[in-house]
Nucleic acid binder design. Structure first.
Lengths: 227, 227, 227, 227
DNA sequence: AATGAATGAGACTTCATTCAT
DNA sequence: TATGAATGAAGTCTCATTCAT
């Protein structure tokens, strides 16, 4: 058991080191030597735990994404209404990303463009994560919160696209500002198109007199730019 | 002058070869040797034209994005109305991507995640491309097509995020289907939130009885998935 | 005592495994991992019994050569005449080799060319084995069987050289034929030069009409080749 | 042409370095790094010229043995009589070995025990070298110099075995004495058994009063020992 | 302009050996 | 005694890059 623990510990140390280095210097610039040094063991030992550099890259976010999957249901539990759920989903997702920026960086910047990513467990987990959104949209249509002719797939595309865009920009900009800047507003803007027009909404109204818009942008130019 | 032409020709051959290989095998798996062989010259000679592999990557889409910039104004010329312009922008952009998938793949998959991309000419050109959208949103607000409290930056984020999402998925899925599948519908869905509620719109109505929704998705599973 | 036996048993198992593997795959290609696996213990445990791989190689034939030394006197006991003794020596030696081909292979192919072989106990035992020949030659000179001006050292060189040559070829050829093919004839041929010309010999006569010579060689190409 | 020369030169430098190091420290203890350093180039460059360490080992004596083959006919040209030829062969062979001790060491100590040696060009060349002896023995039988019932194959075995024995011992003893010590005597001793007894020979007579025998051995203990 | 040759660096692999438990 | 874990060293290979010609 001690053995098991120790092995797990070493493995974990390697993952932590690799995560940090990949996130800091990028995948390519990070060497196996760097990682093993950082983890406090020899290169040869590292190869006892991982097949190689790419295996390491592909394995790193495994745990994180699995946790996300598990957490998702838990977090959603007890929330009523599709819009509330959608809102929760966004806030929850960004919070998790803010709390694990290294994992996020690896998933969003290095993993997604890797040719082998799609064969990964991570990939299918990410799909499950996004698939959850479809249920929300379907529910919203049933309950009348969303327009009955809403195409859930396309709504999800908009939602995911926007969310990913926000995250990716944040990562590329060095995570210097809060992911939650303007989040309320952009959420409402996105949602607006999904709402059932038959129902009187106040959604966008809340922001109607939002004289803070400009303030935000004056304080932080980041919000204005896209990659 | 013959020299000059010759040089340009060689340079162009290198770019074409690199483009094809990067797009086919990815940036990392493509070697300088591959590229120079394909271009019909020695590896050393390639270094007369480019600083190195990364320089090549960063330079390749230069021309393409410059062309986009030039073409944009031209294509927009004479189009009346913000929504019409936005629509034109989307259709135009996707068409260009469909016509130059290699360039697109390099920009969307390999370039954007490169640490040095932001120092690139391409980057600033892409920004200009996206900045154009702000003008459209501002115009829409002025003319009353869009709600007066619309935050142009956030609208642009949604628009760009969704567009990029569509493109990225298409690239990752091997460009096997048409980029224009469901485009009409997703455009209308996105736009809906931007519209001025005071104005009677017909936008979404067009799709109201769109019983084809399901057909599309049954035929092609691609539309349902996200990366 | 049980412990002692156990230890001896394990040691012996290691030796047997190493012997087989060295002989089969050669010294270099055989790994400590192979040997310990074959012997049914861990690599680390092997180091409790032997200093390392080279020590193993150097130790393996220890027992065998010691046995040879012991057996030699025993086998020679009661044999009369230098030529008879020489003959006995040759037949005895080849029989021992035929019965322990793994040991022989290790001694002849891997050990003799090892830089540290000469510091070995095995080496000094082999010398004693060969030294015995000098006594035979000296005896033959005294008794008049061999020419009085015979240089025992050189006679021994011829004898040992030829014998080793026969053995080495046999080993390299995969031990597919009998070591005793043509042995009679080659022994007589060798001896002929040592004989006292004053004494009427019949040695070579015996083979005079040996019309089987060619038969042997036609049947088995091995005899014809040298390494 | 300059290129060709340069490449040949580099290749040759690698071979020289490897030869020296293998001969000095043995095959196993010599590293690729040692060799490339000695040859004044990088490890990577070495791999441009040779597949690896074993390829190097197997290639090194190629040239030497080819030269031997070529030289053999040349040296034998004009020599009359089988015994004279045999004598020439022995003296010639040992001279060549004395002049190229590094090559000899590699062939005799490292190559012959290598599992892949037999697939080598060197191997077949060595066989040709030894095959030449058969012709000499056959000639001797025809001319009556050798006994008519002499089995050429076995005579060759004795000759080659003895010769190899002399060489191997010399190499293992550090090449400290002359290969030609006692050569005359051992040659005559070996030959004696081959001679046609019908012919009056003087061969062994020459050494009859050779009271120097003991002197040689007293001066140098090496001559007395065998491996 | 072009290139053959070389190179340094790093990935990956294997292995004999050591050591804490 | 025994072993899992680790390691240093070397072999092997690939590649981006440099340089003399």
């Amino acid at each position: 058991m001690a053995n098991r623990n120790q092995k797990e510990d070493t493995r974990s140390r390697i993952i932590q080191s690799a995560k940090r280095l990949f996130a800091e210097q990028g995948y390519q610039k990070t060497t196996i030597s760097d990682i093993s040094k950082q983890a406090g063991l020899s290169e040869a030992a590292l190869y006892e735990y991982f097949q190689g550099k790419e295996d390491l890259l592909l394995t790193i976010p495994q745990l994180w994404v699995s946790e996300l999957i598990e957490d998702l249901e838990d977090q959603m539990f007890g929330i009523d209404g599709a819009i509330n759920k959608l809102r929760k989903y966004l806030w929850w997702n960004l919070r998790r990303i803010e709390k694990a920026p290294l994992d996020a960086k690896i998933v969003y910047l290095f993993l997604k463009t890797n040719a082998n990513f799609m064969k990964t467990q991570v990939y299918s987990n990410v799909r499950r994560l996004y698939a959850y959104l479809l249920e929300i949209f379907d529910e919203g249509k049933r309950t009348g919160e969303f327009r009955e002719d809403l195409n859930s797939y396309l709504a999800r595309d908009i939602f995911v696209g926007t969310m990913d865009h926000i995250v990716t920009r944040w990562l590329l900009k060095g995570m210097k500002y809060s992911l939650f800047d303007n989040l309320e507003e952009i959420f409402n803007l996105m949602i607006e198109g999904f709402r059932n027009p038959a129902v009187l909404t106040q959604g966008i109204k809340e922001n109607k007199n939002n004289i803070n818009n400009q303030k935000f942008y004056k304080e932080d130019g980041n919000g204005k730019t896209v990659i």
